[in-house]
Amino acid sequence: MKIQKPAKAGTMESNDIYIMVQPNDEGGVILNLESIVMTQFGNQIKTVIMETLKELGVEDAVVTAKDRGALDYTIRARIETAVKRGM
């Protein structure tokens, strides 16, 4: 799946995550993550985002994620929505 245009999903509300995806002509996935639980869950959030992108077949993208304590299913849903909006 190829990201054609910038797209976003999610909010900056507590327990949500704000996702923005953009095309990456250079190739590969660049992830910029901010999280209020970075020390405790930073690695887990990165893994979930990368896995979800892979499942969706996204190989090239710049992903900006601003996490406010979202659970994994929220993260997956927001990524999927942003990606589909950006197709």
Binding site: V37, T39, Q40, F41, G42, N43, Q44, L71, D72
Partner: peptide
């Protein structure tokens, strides 16, 4: 089960 196990802070 909801959150996953948090990493220990250093």
């Amino acid at each position: 089960d909801m959150t996953g196990k948090p990493e220990k802070i250093q």
